[in-house]
Amino acid sequence: MPSRRRTLLKVIILGDSGVGKTSLMNQYVNKKFSNQYKATIGADFLTKEVQFEDRLFTLQIWDTAGQERFQSLGVAFYRGADCCVLVYDVNSMKSFENLNNWREEFLIQASPSDPENFPFVLIGNKVDVDDGNSRVVSEKKAKAWCASKGNIPYFETSAKVGTNVEEAFQCIAKDALKSGEEEELYLPDTIDVGTSNQQRSTGCEC
């Protein structure tokens, strides 16, 4: 079956509502932060060019668009992901406890061909809040969780001030690239439906 070299890498970001998923990707791609909290509106996917060893790749980072709030993400959202980013809020024990659910949901919906080695990255966000005084999930506890899931990488970030965001996404991009190259996906020829030009037919139809 034909396949073409992959230059588009899909990354999805999962986690409870309000942990800062949208802010993280906005900080990484657009270097922006908004203090205004609304359960995600207007976030879709963002793309960023990344370079590794003289090759250019497009990282396509998919937000949940708020559909995770009532566990209503469809299978299409998960399909074809090259890396899964799990995000929790270090000030919310519940968001940390729900990581198991998010990871299991991903493995069920995405059905990766090698689930044991599929790349996850864990992010503990909002380390800036109250100068760290309202923190309830210790770094030690989070690292233990990562170790128990096959030593997945862990980053503590603040989307607000930009702490560690670049570092986290560099790791994500590297893991997505490695995953994407190993997966020899069947990529059928597709057609571009995006243009709205109206072609005039020439000649008779029959």
Binding site: G66, F70, G74
Partner: peptide, 29 residues
């Protein structure tokens, strides 16, 4: 004719995502 990869079930999901991106709230189950 054209036909989507992964079948026609992709179409409702795609439009649902459009709604969500513009603020629609989704509750399955």
């Amino acid at each position: 004719y054209i036909y989507p990869l992964y079948g026609l079930g992709e179409l409702p999901q795609a439009f649902a995502r459009l709604s969500a991106v513009y603020g629609g709230t989704y509750m399955l189950n």
